[in-house]
């Protein structure tokens, strides 16, 4: 019994020391991430169960008030409890606008990714580069650029007015529409990139085979191309949906104070609202929504790589 064990030792020792080395190499990054990214998330969870301090901050006393306040509104004067309409409106707006944004970026991004994927190979990286450049530039600046286009004295309104189509500017800024346009604009590259990745891998002899079997262009698109690039569609949708849901800068700049999304509501609690536990509870809610979306993504991708549809 002992001899074979001893004989196998050098190998497993080597393996073990290699694993130890790998952990040691990764450790510093993990420590920093734990300290300044994932670890603090736990504190948020804890905070959501504390009582609010009078001037911001918290009182270290267990309370479910914050969670209660996420959904309900208690009138300070007569003590009646109603549904927290304001919160629900904002939550609904976040989900709805994120969803619409995802749909629009998909509708625009799919043809764009397809266009790039069908260029001659040597030109593709240049087209792709043109998509990525805006992505690597400042989100705030891009949002600001949209603001300049859609505000009352902006490019669109001035243009329409000079053309005589309208005589007073259309109010676009500080509406849901503005937020949606802005998010579509800033997150479009996130849709195109994964779509392109799966289209580039698309085996075009399958398209040839479909044409060979009498499919029309429309049928080729619907029966062959779309089902085959579905992983890219799902990945792109998730990549757009998640940051849209947590968007902060875009609704703040384009929605003004009027049209808030979840991110702005959270900020409000840590600023003027002075209700940190409520802010924490809202953050946890947002995180839960995002995790649910991610989980759904993992589920569907697993199903797709798995057995028969």
């Amino acid at each position: 019994m002992r001899i074979p064990k001893a004989a196998s030792n050098p190998v497993s020792d080597m393996q073990r020391s290699r694993t130890r080395k790998n952990w040691l190499l990764s450790a510093p990054a993990l420590v920093v991430l734990a300290a300044a990214s994932s670890g603090p998330l736990l504190i948020v969870l804890v905070y959501s169960f504390l009582s609010a301090g009078e001037y911001g901050g918290v009182v270290w006393k267990f309370s479910t008030d914050a969670w209660f306040n996420v959904v309900f509104f208690r009138d300070i004067f007569d003590g009646t409890t109603t549904f927290a309409d304001a919160h629900m409106t904002i939550l609904w707006r976040s989900v709805r606008l994120s969803f619409i944004t995802t749909l629009i970026t998909l509708a625009a991004g799919f043809p764009t990714a397809y266009f790039i994927a069908t260029r001659p190979r040597r030109n593709r990286s240049l087209w792709l580069f043109l998509i990525t450049v805006p992505f690597w530039t400042n989100l705030l600046i891009r949002t600001f650029a949209i603001l300049e286009v859609i505000r009352n004295e902006g490019l669109i309104n001035i243009g329409l007015q000079t053309l005589g189509i309208i005589d007073k500017p259309i109010q676009m800024l500080y509406t849901d529409f503005a937020i949606m346009v802005g998010m579509t604009y800033v997150y479009l590259p996130l849709m195109v990139l994964p779509l392109y990745a799966s289209m580039e891998r698309l085996n075009f002899s399958l398209v040839e085979a479909a044409y060979d079997l009498y499919a029309t262009r429309h049928k080729v698109l619907h029966r062959i191309i779309i089902p085959l690039v579905k992983p890219g569609i799902i990945a792109g949708s998730i990549l757009v949906f998640i940051p849209s849901l947590g968007a902060f800068v875009t609704p703040r700049v384009l929605g003004g104070g009027k049209k808030m999304m979840l991110g702005n509501l959270i900020e409000l609690q840590f600023g003027a609202g002075r209700n940190w536990p409520l802010g924490a509870a809202l953050s946890v809610t947002l995180l839960a929504l995002v995790m649910a979306a991610l989980l759904m993504y993992v589920r569907t991708t697993q199903r797709h790589s798995g057995s028969v549809r």
Partner: peptide, 22 residues
């Protein structure tokens, strides 16, 4: 004539079977 209007079918070198269908 486009390929979908020719009464000609092909067996491809790499078969090109649709992977998402039975």
């Amino acid at each position: 004539l486009p390929p979908n209007q020719r009464s000609v079918n092909t067996v491809f070198q790499d078969y090109a079977l649709f992977p998402h269908m039975t």
